[in-house]
């Protein structure tokens, strides 16, 4: 893996999300896994079993942090206690890069604990850029922002989601965690072509890729992380790796979690695309 400055030139290949139902398997069988992604908020505590388990994992495996409550797009300032605890965890895990979502979720100190979509406006670009820069400066490691699955769009939007993402990452000079399942979910919910999104993303900024499964309802798709990755999402992944080159890739599985082996096997399907010879022409162009 060549890596880039947005993932600290990491050589990470395919990883899976660290989930409690797999602890026993991991500790007893010690499977070969390239890396685990942890949800930062589950470990931003003072002490106790979660941190002890994490320390044991880190004795053997590489860990990358992924957050769910930084809310880069929230208008109210982040909680200093949140930032303090996050930095403490960054120092503990030595995560080479850190990701969180391009969304908002709290207002006036009240938290929805959801990843709420932003209106794609210039005002939102400015607010978000400011927050990403501040967090990146504070944490002193590369930060990547992840595109979210969304179920609502805003009348105020002035651009497409991929234009919004591009504006934010270029101005904040940060990386992208490209979730190709989220692109698919949002494309179905907002009736756009997901391949247009993948083709428009600034490929040289992609630090990491997420893959996952979802649930389809009659009138919308929900990003439930409780199924295998479907073929159309693998097609988006194939195109993303074609554009970005081999990129650290992570499978998220958060509900009805099957055995460790099943989850890991699903993740390793990504190697079908990662091991192909990649011209990564666009990266060469971006670098020149």
């Amino acid at each position: 893996m060549p890596g880039n400055r947005f993932n600290a030139y990491a050589d990470h290949t395919v990883g899976i999300g660290l989930r409690i139902p797999h602890y026993q398997h991991i500790f007893s069988r010690k499977p070969v896994v390239d890396w685990f992604e942890i949800i930062s908020e589950n470990f931003m505590i003072d002490a106790g079993r979660p941190l002890a388990m994490l320390d044991q994992i880190m004795d053997r495996y590489r860990v990358v942090q992924h957050g769910v409550s930084m809310y880069f797009g929230s208008v109210t300032a982040p909680d200093p206690e949140h930032l303090r605890r996050l930095k403490q965890l960054v120092q503990r895990t030595k995560t080479p890069w850190l990701s969180d979502h391009l969304c908002w979720g709290s207002v006036d100190g009240t938290y929805t604990h959801d990843l709420l979509p932003l209106p794609y406006t210039w005002e939102a670009v400015e607010r978000t850029v400011e927050r990403v820069r501040m967090v990146q400066d504070f944490l002193e490691i590369p930060v990547a922002v992840e595109n979210v699955s969304s179920y609502a769009a805003f009348t105020a939007s002035q651009m497409t989601e991929w234009e919004f993402l591009t504006e934010v990452v270029e101005r904040a000079d940060c990386g992208i965690l490209l979730d190709v399942n989220n692109i698919y979910v949002s494309a179905m919910n907002h009736e756009f072509n997901p391949m247009d999104y993948v083709n428009a993303v600034p490929a040289h900024r992609v630090a990491q890729i997420h893959i996952a499964g979802h649930s389809r309802y009659e009138k919308y798709i929900l990003d439930t992380h409780d199924h295998p990755v479907i073929d159309p999402v693998w097609q988006l992944y194939a195109r993303a790796t074609e554009r970005c080159g081999p990129t650290p890739t992570l499978l998220e599985w958060d509900d009805h979690i099957p055995s460790f082996d099943e989850v890991h096997a699903e993740a390793l399907k990504a190697n079908r695309y990662l091991r192909r010879k990649q011209p990564a022409q666009e990266l060469v162009e971006a670098a020149s």
């Binding site: 797009g73 208008v75 207002v107 006036d108 009240t110 929805t112 607010r127 105020a156």
Partner: peptide, 15 residues
């Protein structure tokens, strides 16, 4: 509607 108003209105609706 600016970003702040959207977020206040949406948070109130969602919660």
């Amino acid at each position: 509607m600016n970003l702040e108003s959207i977020q206040r209105e949406m948070a109130a609706a969602v919660m």
